[in-house]
């Protein structure tokens, strides 16, 4: 079963490698975000000082000096702002985990297209005629989504590091982050497969995915901390699997201070919250693995 799934996965990876434009865009887009948003928000938070909500929570190290300046001028010093700024997280540090999460999501949510294409062009029948376990087909395709999500996530992580984002927890944290990326890649892969099995044409899948990715993306806390969102958005955020990935990535990579837990940057302190994220993500992934499996079983007799 696993062996056959690997063959199916290998084919998908070959396709991916040949789609130059797609590879480039899937890597360049998050990099553009990182560079433009990451840096420009840094500027903004330093420039606007006290009136920037983001700054309240995650303010930049580089902005501390400017903050003092502006707050002195405005003469409205808020003690809490000062303390949180001492945590020393730039917007880039805050933001890059979010970009990784969103990248992972986009890398996986379209993978169900391959089932639709294969059905339409008859390749699916060819797989079904082969003497392989039926489920290995779905498994292979989901595996591909997972591998792709992980690869793209790692590339963005590496790039973030290169442009100055900081990892404050070390090897264990990074390893844990990878596990979380893998988990949600698998979940989004299975989710997309479920759609692919059910839907007959790619436009329908594109439509649904486009409809849900934007809300997922905005409510995930990739741009701003969930705590600062309006209440109704928070409700959505807590029902959004991406929120838990982004949160878990921040905890794993930063050790928690982004949410003002304070020093030291240690994984132990954030373990309970990581556990919560792990459970939430496992539930999501498990649910869609089961749904996908059932749908697939039903569709191939």
């Amino acid at each position: 079963m696993l062996k056959e799934a690997c063959y199916v996965c290998e084919r998908e990876l070959k396709h991916f490698i040949r789609m130059r434009v797609q590879i480039i865009s899937s890597i360049v887009t998050p990099i553009v975000w990182l560079v433009f948003f990451g840096y420009s928000m840094n500027m903004m938070s330093s420039g606007l000082g006290g009136i920037n909500i983001l700054n309240v929570f995650i303010g930049g190290e580089r902005s501390v000096f400017l903050y003092f300046l502006t707050s002195a001028l405005n003469a409205t010093p808020l003690q809490s702002l000062v303390i949180q700024n001492y945590l020393g997280i730039s917007y880039l540090d805050f933001f890059y985990s979010g970009v990784i999460g969103v990248t992972v999501m986009f890398a996986c949510v379209f993978s169900g297209l391959s089932i639709i294409w294969d059905k339409r062009f008859g390749f699916f029948n060819k797989l079904l005629v082969a003497p392989i376990p039926r489920l290995s087909i779905m498994l292979g395709k989901t595996m591909y989504a997972t591998v792709r999500g992980l690869i793209q996530g790692v590339i963005i992580l590496g790039f973030s590091f290169l442009i100055g984002a900081r990892i404050r927890t070390g090897v264990v944290g990074v390893a844990l982050a990878l596990v979380f990326m893998l988990l949600l890649s698998l979940g989004f892969g299975a989710f997309s497969m479920s759609l692919g099995i059910k839907l007959a044409d790619q436009e329908a899948l594109f439509g649904i995915i486009n409809m849900i990715t934007l809300p997922l993306f905005i409510s995930s806390g990739a741009f701003m901390p969930v705590d600062t969102m309006p209440g109704w958005l928070q409700v959505i955020a807590y029902g959004n699997p991406l929120t838990y990935l982004v949160d878990a990535l921040r905890l794993c990579l930063l050790g928690g201070p982004y949410s003002a837990l304070g020093l030291p940057f240690s994984l132990i302190d954030v373990a309970p919250r990581l556990m919560r994220d792990l459970i939430a993500l496992s539930v999501f992934t498990g649910t869609f693995l089961i749904i996908g499996t059932l749908l697939f079983r039903g569709s191939v007799k």
Binding site: Y7, R11, K14, H15, F121, G122, K126, V129, P131, I132
Partner: peptide, 27 residues
């Protein structure tokens, strides 16, 4: 059995050899 479907369904984005290799593995 071997099956040659009505609508051509060899994989466009693989080479001829890669198509055959995949097939051989699946069998």
């Amino acid at each position: 059995i071997g099956f040659v479907p009505q609508d051509i369904s060899v994989d466009d984005d693989l080479t001829a050899r890669e198509n055959l290799e995949l097939h051989a593995k699946l069998y």
